[in-house]
Simulated assay, not measured.
Amino acid sequence: MELNSEKYNCLVVDDEPIARKIIKNYIQQIGLLQLEAECINALGAIDYLRNHDRTDIIFLDINMPNLSGLQMLKILQPKQPVIFTTAYAEHALESYDLNAVDYLLKPFSFERFTKAVYKAVNNIQKTGNAIAAITHEPKAPFFIKSGGSNFPVHLDDILYCEAKKNYTMVVLEDGKKLMPLVPLSKFETLLSDAGGTFVQIHRSYLVATKHISSVTPNSIKVGQYQLPIGIQFRERFFTTIGIKEEEPSEGDEI
């Protein structure tokens, strides 16, 4: 297949300065690529990707503090091709289970790096430049009835949902709140049927996994909101996002 001449924006995520420097140098040597940004940890990368829509290829380290590259991939589920760059071979199988394009074992050569890059570019082209389509083509809205009116809402704009007796309060990324007369359990089913990716963290809270920016044993942060993790939901939640469950502190609510 003949590759087109457009540039592919790259995000480098690695906590080691030397590793980032090597990858950036390799990127500069390949005409198809251009460095878009670099992040020193997974949380910074999640925040960056949530606020920028031009990234085409992600170079992702695995062993990083607080949140690993594998955990980041499970939480964010990025549409961009991901190339893992790591010093540890034992994670290779799991990385392919997460649909990584390639797995580069440090120290890797420029030749091996180039091979991974062309696999990623071919992946993008085979899907008809799917990244641009996903980013720029609007998805069909999900209509929510609140206060007697129906409001079109894109699933990606929902931060979390909170149970309010027979209602569900839907909190959007722009701060707007809707109150459909639907209990949380039924609203979760409606969101799932519409293609949303949400996880229940508490009997009163359902959150969008793509908007999770930090996690503690007792709570998570979505947008500007800190929400509690209920005891009965903790194990399933940590399993879903791929983080080993930590011991909760005293005073945690069920």
Rank of each mutant, 00 (worst) to 15 (best):
F59H: 11
E38N: 09
L33A: 09
Y88P: 05
K79N: 13
L98Y: 10
S68P: 07
G69L: 06
I57W: 12
A45T: 04
D97S: 11
L76E: 04
A100F: 11
L98H: 05
L105W: 10
L33S: 09
Q80C: 03
L76S: 11
R50P: 00
N41Q: 06
I75P: 03
F84G: 01
T85M: 14
N41W: 05
I58S: 04
P78R: 10
Q80H: 03
E94S: 13
A87N: 09
D53W: 00
I62E: 04
K79R: 07
D53A: 01
L104V: 10
Y48C: 02
Q34F: 06
I40F: 12
D56T: 06
L49W: 05
R50D: 01
T85H: 09
T55E: 05
D97H: 14
L70F: 08
F84Q: 03
A37R: 06
V82F: 08
G69K: 10
L105S: 10
I40H: 14
Y103M: 05
E36I: 00
P81T: 04
A37N: 12
E38P: 06
L67E: 03
N51Q: 13
R54C: 00
T86E: 14
A42T: 04
I46Y: 00
G69P: 07
G44K: 02
F84L: 09
L35F: 08
G69Y: 07
N41E: 10
D47C: 00
I58F: 07
A92D: 09
L43K: 09
R54D: 03
G44H: 01
S68E: 06
V101C: 12
A42W: 05
N99C: 13
L33E: 07
D61I: 05
L49P: 00
G69D: 09
Q80N: 06
I83R: 05
I58L: 11
K74M: 12
L49H: 02
L73S: 07
H91N: 15
L70Y: 07
N99M: 13
S68K: 07
E36T: 01
I40T: 14
A89T: 08
Q77T: 13
R50K: 05
R50T: 01
L70H: 10
K106G: 10
A37M: 02
N66Q: 14
P81S: 06
A89H: 10
L93I: 15
D97W: 08
V101W: 13
N66H: 11
P65K: 14
